[in-house]
Each structure stands twice: as structure tokens, then as C-alpha cells.
Simulated assay, not measured.
Amino acid sequence: MEYVNIILFSLIALFIVQRFIPVKGVRNISTLQLKNELKDKKKQFIDVRTVGEFKSYHIPGFTNIPLHSLSQNIKGLSKDKEIFVICQSGMRSQKASKILVKNGFTHVVNVKGGVSSWR
């Protein structure tokens, strides 16, 4: 029974660590740093929140591609341009960043703190 507890604890710890480790190949910036980046029209900015969240409030310049549909809409994004990803708090944008990297995007930037930090 003790071995089961050790294995269970190890799996839970591994899950928690994986959730908070930054994605390899993804640059993380603050919303303060984002303000300077928004001026560059050569960059892509996507908001991975739901359509309702986006309609309620969004940062001008961002395009809404909800996380659940990112894989289906990934072909509309350029791999040659730097892509900035934001959500409400930073968790969904981190997941979106992983999806982008797995699909061959090399210039991915995650906005830490999300729209909540912007306001």
C-alpha cells in the first residue's frame, strides 16, 4: 500500500510541475512589455479566450482564435512572423503556445498574466 501512495504522490507532483514549467522555445513577456510590441504591424496577435470573453473585452490588434479551435485554424497563421498569444490569466495561452510549437512555429511569445494583467 505504501508503494501505491508513493507512485500516486509522484504522479500528482509530476502533473503539477508540468503545468507550471515554461514551454521550451516560447518567450514569456509581461503585459507592460506587450504594449511596446503592439506597435509592430509585422507581428501576429491572437487571443485564445472564448468568443464571449473576447466580445466582452479585448485588446485592440488581437484576433480571436479560441483555444478549442486553434488546431483547426492554425493554417491561417504565418510561421514566418512572431506570434503573441494571450488569454485571461496565462494558462490557456501557455497551452496554445505548446500547440503552436508542436506545429512548427518557432517565434511564439506568451503574454504572462493575460488580459487580467492588462487592465
Rank of each mutant, 00 (worst) to 15 (best):
V4Q: 11
N5L: 15
L8P: 01
L8H: 03
L8N: 07
L8V: 14
F9D: 05
F9R: 05
F9Y: 12
S10G: 14
L11H: 06
L11A: 11
I12H: 10
I12L: 13
A13Y: 03
A13G: 04
F15W: 14
F15C: 08
I16Q: 10
I16N: 09
V17R: 06
Q18I: 07
Q18E: 12
F20H: 12
F20K: 08
I21T: 12
P22C: 08
R27S: 14
R27F: 02
N28I: 14
N28R: 12
I29M: 12
I29W: 07
L32N: 12
Q33C: 05
L34E: 02
K35S: 15
K35C: 05
K35L: 14
N36A: 15
L38Q: 03
L38E: 05
K39Q: 14
K39C: 11
D40K: 14
K41A: 15
K43G: 04
K43H: 12
K43E: 09
K43F: 12
K43R: 13
Q44R: 09
I46F: 02
I46D: 02
V51N: 08
G52V: 04
G52A: 11
G52R: 05
E53M: 00
F54P: 00
F54D: 00
K55M: 12
S56M: 07
Y57N: 10
I59S: 04
I59G: 02
I59L: 07
P60I: 04
P60D: 06
P60A: 08
G61P: 01
G61W: 00
F62L: 02
F62M: 01
P66D: 04
P66V: 05
L67G: 01
H68Y: 11
S69F: 12
L70Q: 10
L70W: 09
S71C: 05
S71G: 05
S71M: 10
Q72N: 14
Q72G: 05
N73I: 06
N73E: 10
K75P: 01
K75E: 11
G76T: 05
L77W: 03
K79A: 06
D80L: 07
K81G: 04
E82D: 13
I83W: 04
F84T: 01
F84I: 13
C87V: 07
C87W: 03
